[in-house]
Simulated scan of single mutants.
Amino acid sequence: MANTYFSFKSFTVHQDKTAMKVCTDACLFGAWTVKHALKPETKQILDIGTGTGLLSLMLAQFTQSTIDAVEIDKNAAIQARENFDASPWKNQLFVHHQSMAEYLQEQNRKFDLIISNPPFFENQLKSSQHNRNLAMHSQEFSLNFLARAMVDLLSDDGIGAVLIPYQRTEEWRELAHREKLSLVHCCYVKQSESHPFFRSMFLLRKLKKEKKNNTTEIKEEICIKVGPDYSEVFKSILKPYYLAF
């Protein structure tokens, strides 16, 4: 049985109401995004599919930006609000219980940073647990929709951050290119040196009309563990958050 909460150095994530629990790759993604995408000039942040609110809380620890967190599942939205209210940054965190399609219809703002750990699976076997389906599958949300939403909502110099399964890397690259999104940084993640890659993390920007896509894409790899211990790279990135480091 999964723990009902996960304690970090500066906040706690309760997860008893949500289908998707705090996981290592999501924690790595949040910390990696803070390291590479959070800027002093970042003022408006959007977290698409916030779940427990984990990524928003990781960002809030290092910024005074306003963070909008969108979540379609009612129980997850309630959980995120509770986690935000219990944190030191409750006044800058806002939960929107609605679909991204509904949120888009209401928005005229642009965001300096958009982060998303989107539903992983499309057109695959569904479980009988509805809220887990919403979190893991894409009947309500697709990578194509995410790419278009980023184009619509990113500011001219804004950064998008996305975590996807490694096997969908080329699909995401093609979608990003089609939607005029420039991939500026990618990181391939594996559990250990003997495991295959299982996650890809991307940073991207809108391709400016007056410029060709001549940005050099940074590429890196991260092993979560080396031998029985966490790798030094993983420890360094997660040190501001994990109690064990």
Rank of each mutant, 00 (worst) to 15 (best):
A2D: 12
T4R: 09
F8S: 08
K9C: 01
F11D: 08
H14A: 02
Q15S: 08
D16K: 12
D16A: 09
K17P: 00
M20S: 06
D25N: 08
F29L: 02
G30I: 02
W32R: 06
H36K: 15
H36Y: 15
L38F: 09
L38Q: 06
K39D: 04
K39M: 11
P40W: 11
E41T: 15
L46E: 07
L46S: 05
I48T: 04
T50Q: 05
G51R: 09
L54D: 07
M58G: 02
L59Y: 13
F62Y: 09
F62E: 01
F62M: 03
Q64A: 08
S65I: 02
T66I: 10
K74F: 14
N75Y: 07
I78M: 07
I78D: 12
I78W: 10
R81L: 10
D85Y: 01
S87G: 09
P88T: 11
W89L: 02
W89G: 01
K90N: 07
N91T: 14
Q92V: 03
H97K: 10
S99A: 13
A101W: 02
L104F: 01
Q107L: 03
Q107K: 09
Q107T: 11
K110N: 05
D112H: 13
I115V: 14
S116R: 05
S116K: 04
N117K: 04
N117C: 09
P118Q: 03
P118W: 05
P119G: 05
P119M: 09
F120K: 09
E122V: 11
N123Y: 09
Q124Y: 00
L125S: 08
K126G: 00
K126E: 08
S127L: 05
S127D: 00
N131W: 02
R132C: 03
N133D: 11
M136E: 10
M136F: 04
E140R: 13
N144Q: 12
F145T: 13
L146Q: 04
V151Q: 15
D152R: 15
G160C: 06
L163M: 13
I164V: 15
P165A: 09
Y166C: 10
Q167C: 03
T169D: 11
L175P: 00
A176C: 11
H177Y: 10
R178T: 06
R178K: 05
E179Q: 10
L181K: 03
L181C: 02
S182M: 07
L183D: 00
H185L: 12
C187T: 12
Y188W: 14
V189P: 07
Q191G: 01
Q191C: 00
S192V: 02
E193T: 12
S194R: 11
S194F: 06
S200N: 12
M201C: 14
F202V: 05
F202I: 05
L207F: 00
L207S: 12
K208D: 12
K208C: 03
K209D: 12
E210I: 07
K211W: 04
K211C: 05
K212D: 03
N214L: 15
T215I: 14
I218V: 14
I218M: 14
E220A: 06
E221A: 07
C223H: 07
I224N: 04
I224F: 03
V226R: 08
V226L: 08
P228K: 03
D229W: 08
D229S: 04
D229C: 08
Y230T: 06
E232Y: 02
V233F: 00
F234N: 02
K235V: 03
S236N: 12
I237V: 15
L238I: 14
K239P: 01
P240A: 13
L243Y: 12
A244E: 15
F245A: 05
F245V: 01
